[in-house]
């Protein structure tokens, strides 16, 4: 004999990450640290923007800590380290995104009393990071024109949940037959309330405007 039972769960699988993210956020707040996550495509310029942000902070007498996520390697770690920031490298191995648990552990390796701003660079990916907030105060998504003019409408949600959007490498638009207006029109329709910055990070165009906005608490 056997009987059938119905068991209620009502448990959100993604909620476990969100709870840890909330803890991370509170912990960083308690140290008076502004925290910013950079999500975005592979090769969109996230690391270069972070390098420049570290320099920008230093120029204003502020110290940065950086957590760098990549599937493998320490290329980004070495680039950012050269700018004098305290950097922790996180290799995810198989996962295509960081999660709050990884960030919680990585942040334990940084002296939080010695920094003013914690920057987290997620793995290059426009999909998965949207489901895994890390606990930072702000989330920035970076794309570049070289990926084509359809990136926004192909990945709407990540733009909708971001606090700021950077469209980078605008100087290259004419060489890759991309009309920046198409991207801007998509952004206006899909994420009209999220501030968007058109930058050429390499040569510095509009970068200061973006950095001042993102560091403004």
């Amino acid at each position: 004999m056997h009987k059938i039972i119905d068991v209620e769960f009502e448990a959100d699988v993604l909620d476990a990450n969100r709870r840890i993210a909330d803890d991370v956020g509170e912990h960083l707040d308690s140290h008076g640290i502004l925290s910013v996550e950079f999500m975005g495509s592979t090769g969109s310029g996230k690391t270069l923007i972070i390098e420049k942000l570290v320099d920008h902070l230093a120029k204003n007498g502020k110290r940065a800590g950086v957590i760098v996520g990549d599937v493998a390697g320490d290329d980004d770690y070495r680039r950012i380290k050269a700018h004098g920031a305290e950097v922790v490298n996180v290799n995810t191995g198989k996962e295509c995104h960081l999660d709050a648990h990884l960030v919680e552990h990585a942040s334990e390796k940084i002296d939080l009393d010695a920094i003013d701003c914690l920057i987290v660079e997620n793995v290059g990916n426009l999909i998965c990071p949207a489901d895994f907030p890390l606990g930072t105060k702000k989330r920035v998504v970076v794309i570049s024109v070289t990926e084509g003019d359809d990136m926004v409408r192909k990945h709407p949600v990540i733009f909708q949940i971001a606090d700021a959007i950077v469209v980078n490498k605008i100087d290259l638009a004419p060489y890759v037959d991309v009309d920046l207006k198409v991207i801007q029109t998509d952004l206006k329709r899909i994420a009209p309330h999220v501030p968007a910055f058109m930058t050429d990070a390499k040569h510095g165009e509009n970068l200061e405007t973006f950095m001042d906005a993102i560091l403004d608490e």
Binding site: M1, K3, I4, V7, F9, E10, A11, D12, H193
Partner: peptide, 22 residues
């Protein structure tokens, strides 16, 4: 205007049917 998301991001285990041997 801008909005906050109340629902729609979840992946919830609602319930499960299990067999108990007696």
């Amino acid at each position: 205007g801008s909005t906050d998301i109340l629902e729609g991001r979840e992946c919830e285990i609602v319930n499960a049917t299990m067999v108990m041997e007696e």
